[in-house]
């Protein structure tokens, strides 16, 4: 009797879940159709009046996507370190900025941009490793003190970087095969003589987006298909149980910290080439990582991707349409997420 009622209820739930998923699917399809129409159709005048112009709108979307790529690169390391070690690394922004400076120096001296990118990744990974082994392992289980230490490190790092590189703005030069702009197969307007105006966008920014996607897929594969990834996921779920089952947790921690710090440095060089390198960028990217991780959910790389997408798009769209209230949008997104789903979109319940 009770069995029958149970199965009945399960069926009911399954049915409800399926229809809910279908509903979401329909919504997603509608949104996708609307986006496709926005991208490819010729806009009527009333839409131009609302959204300034098709070109402005599409540029904001593309800028938002590339910024989201950068944010994802920075935040994915942050979220992994947090998820695994419960360590809020507030020096993450400093790793980004230092990586950018290192990349600038190497690229400037050797003349090879790729070498600068590699140096940014490797040197930051090593610094991350040293931080984990020398500092955090000593304070294990004391997450407030760990966080305080990262604050101290970020203050000292910011000041020393100011001493070495000064307050000037640097621009990492992108090699020639990555510069220039390309014409996207999207028509923004027609000239009076009937010729179509295509959307032109810097090639390098699209490359940044592609790099972020590739790294994101790589991270996903590493986490879901390899042994170390399995250990990392197990550690995020239950650190003590992973240690109890005989795995070398410190090795996993060190690996994750190195990857996270390396990605921040990598993002520094890649982002420093697209935008610029200057004091203060560390705080900007720290804020971005914080918000992305709060919105996306701590410890989840997929969450970081979703969060980065939302925040990157919101920031750029805000910049175009509400110039002096742009930050408020980011802030509202964060507050709404926290009130509806405190653990973040993809986060496990606290």
């Amino acid at each position: 009797m009770s069995d029958a009622s149970n199965t009945n209820r399960d069926d009911l739930f399954r049915g409800a879940r399926a229809s809910r998923r279908q509903a979401w699917g329909v919504v997603a399809l509608l949104v996708a159709a609307l986006l496709l129409w926005l991208v490819f159709a010729q806009w009527p005048d009333w839409l131009d009046a609302i959204l300034i112009s098709k070109k402005a709108f599409l540029s904001a979307i593309l800028n938002g996507l590339t910024l989201a790529g950068l944010y994802f690169l920075v935040a994915s390391g942050f979220t992994l370190v947090f998820g695994l070690m419960r360590n809020v690394n507030l020096a993450h922004g400093s790793l980004y900025l230092l990586g950018a400076y290192v990349g600038y120096e190497v690229a400037d001296r050797t003349g090879f941009w790729l070498l600068g990118v590699a140096a940014g990744f490797v040197i930051m990974a090593v610094i991350g490793l040293v931080m984990q082994v020398v500092v955090f392992r000593r304070l294990e289980g004391d997450d407030l003190r760990q966080t305080l230490v990262t604050i101290g490190i970020s203050i000292v790092a910011a000041d020393l970087m100011l001493a070495v590189w000064g307050g000037t703005t640097y621009q990492i030069l992108v090699p020639e095969w990555l510069t220039g702009a390309i014409k996207l197969p999207v028509i923004t307007a027609y000239r009076s003589n009937g010729a179509a105006v295509y959307l032109v966008y810097p090639y390098y920014r699209l490359v940044v987006l592609a790099i972020a996607v590739v790294i994101g897929i790589g991270l996903w594969l590493m986490l879901n298909r390899t042994r170390i990834g399995m250990m990392i996921r197990a550690g995020v779920d239950d650190r003590d149980m992973l240690a109890a089952s005989g795995k070398n947790v410190h090795l996993v921690f060190a690996a994750v910290f190195a990857i996270g710090a390396g990605l921040a440095g990598f993002a520094g060089v890649v982002g420093g080439s697209a935008l610029s390198v200057a004091p203060g960028e560390d705080v900007r990217y720290l804020l971005a990582s914080l918000v992305v991780v709060i919105v996306g959910g701590m410890g989840s790389v997929t969450g970081a991707a979703i969060g980065a997408l939302i925040i990157g798009l919101a920031e750029q769209i805000g910049l175009v349409y509400f110039p002096t209230y742009g930050v408020v949008i980011t802030f509202v997104i964060m507050v709404v997420t926290l009130s509806v789903r405190p653990q973040g979109i993809m986060g496990k319940s606290l």
């Binding site: 966080t147 705080v283 918000v291 709060i294 408020v328 009130s339 606290l350």
Partner: peptide, 21 residues
């Protein structure tokens, strides 16, 4: 709405957002 170490993150995000605003 969150606990422990999250508070630092959220308040830092709030403080930074207010600064930029």
């Amino acid at each position: 709405r969150t606990e422990g170490i999250y508070t630092i993150m959220i308040t830092l995000a709030i403080a930074t957002a207010c600064f930029y605003f």
